[in-house]
């Protein structure tokens, strides 16, 4: 007879999904420029909105986007969350800040980290700037940018977030 053991009360049932992601023409161009340390978007020929990362079409107008727009390193906090709970497999130690950021000249936000800041002082409309890894570490990846850090600039009013020109914010 088998030795007496504790009853089974739980099982591990992981699910692993194996993907191959193929970037389209526009994302490939975006990633190629990203590897060179430059953020680029695409402008819609109809509504003039600038999208980053570009997908090759405008989701609002349904038309192809061709015009490439080179964007800078400054952005505005559109929204944010402070993550306090560790996520399995995530190497970042809580608490950390994840934010929706809109680059100057862009009309849509992307998600990145905020750091070099006091978490409790982060606010919507805050001006921030990208902090890049050393150039020899650049790859086809958004984590070429380590995080964004606060800028000493006046806040952007909520109704103007997402409508700042490429030339930057002047209150």
């Amino acid at each position: 007879m088998a030795e007496q053991k504790e009853p089974v009360t739980g099982i591990k049932s992981p699910v692993y999904l194996h993907y191959r992601f193929t970037a389209g023409k526009a994302p490939t161009r975006f990633l190629t420029r990203l590897k060179e340390g430059v953020l680029t978007g695409q402008r819609c020929p109809r509504c003039s909105n600038v999208y980053i990362p570009p997908r090759g079409s405008c989701p609002a107008c349904g038309v192809a986007t061709e015009e490439e727009v080179t964007l800078g390193n400054k952005a505005t906090v559109q929204s944010f969350t402070i993550v306090s709970i560790p996520i399995p497999g995530n190497i970042i130690e809580p608490p950390y800040v994840v934010a929706n950021l809109v680059l100057d000249g862009a009309n849509i936000a992307f998600i990145h980290l905020l750091s070099e800041c006091v978490n409790e002082e982060i606010h919507i409309g805050q001006r921030v700037q990208a902090v890049w890894k050393p150039s020899e570490e650049w790859d086809y990846a958004m984590d070429n940018i380590l995080y964004f850090k606060p800028l000493d600039e006046p806040d952007v009013p909520v109704d103007q977030i997402g409508h700042i020109p490429i030339s930057g914010w002047r209150s």
């Binding site: 699910v15 692993y16 389209g24 023409k25």
Partner: peptide, 18 residues
Amino acid sequence: TEHLSQTFELGFTYTRST
């Protein structure tokens, strides 16, 4: 344009009470 392509794994490390 040569399109970039990469494999990746998305894992959900579930455990279940029986």
